[in-house]
């Protein structure tokens, strides 16, 4: 009888162990894909912001005597962003475009005609919303990365993570370019 009880206990422990390994594996997979999804969701917003650029340029060009070299530069950066497939490059291009788009949107403060333009106001609002959403999603991305990094370093997850070759992911940090504030230039 003792042997049968022993077998039952061993079976239960084995079943528990297998289910734990399966759930750990699923947990790690989910954490990893959460990070990928969070990153992809930021990329979507970056793309959305880039899509607003032509309309912005058009409205600004019609109403204000804006420096044409800046507009051309912005258009080139946008084209490069659309054609790029490399994630890091896309982020870099987006970061370069961000202050230019900000200054383009902020132009209205000095031009009452532009401020009165409904189309521009709508664009301004949309860009502002996208910027807010990008900030939120960056936070979400960092939270996902943090959960993932903690997840792969926790015991016993760390054993499985090593077998699967999971490595730390880096958090999104504000670049020096973004930190720098040059004021609004025209």
């Amino acid at each position: 009888m003792n042997t049968i009880i022993g077998y039952i206990v061993i079976f239960l422990i084995a079943a528990g162990l297998i289910s734990t390994v399966i759930s750990l594996y699923n947990r790690l997979i989910m954490l990893k894909f959460n990070v990928d999804k969070a990153y992809a969701n930021i990329d979507l917003l970056l793309k959305q912001r880039t899509d607003e650029i032509p309309d912005l340029i058009k409205v600004v060009k019609e109403s204000v005597n804006y420096e044409s070299s800046q507009l051309e530069k912005l258009t080139k950066l946008r084209t490069a962003f659309i054609n790029s497939t490399d994630q890091d490059e896309r982020v870099k291009l987006s970061n370069t475009m961000a202050p230019m788009v900000h200054s383009l949107v902020a132009v209205a403060e000095n031009y009452p005609d532009l401020k009165a333009n409904t189309g521009f106001n709508v664009l301004q609002q949309r860009v502002s919303d996208i910027e807010d959403a990008i900030t939120d999603r960056r936070e979400l991305f960092n939270e996902s990365v943090n959960m993932y990094n903690i997840g792969i370093h926790e015991f016993p997850n760390v054993l499985l993570a090593r077998i699967l070759g999971y490595k730390d992911k880096t958090l999104l940090r504000v670049s020096e370019q973004e930190k720098q504030y040059d004021g609004i230039r025209f």
Binding site: M30, L31, N34, A38, L44, T135, D136, R137, L140, E143
Partner: peptide, 14 residues
């Protein structure tokens, strides 16, 4: 436990 908390303003589909 696995999902990060999203903000309503920027919540993505899914």
């Amino acid at each position: 436990q696995l999902l990060p908390t999203s903000k309503i303003r920027s919540v993505a589909m899914g």
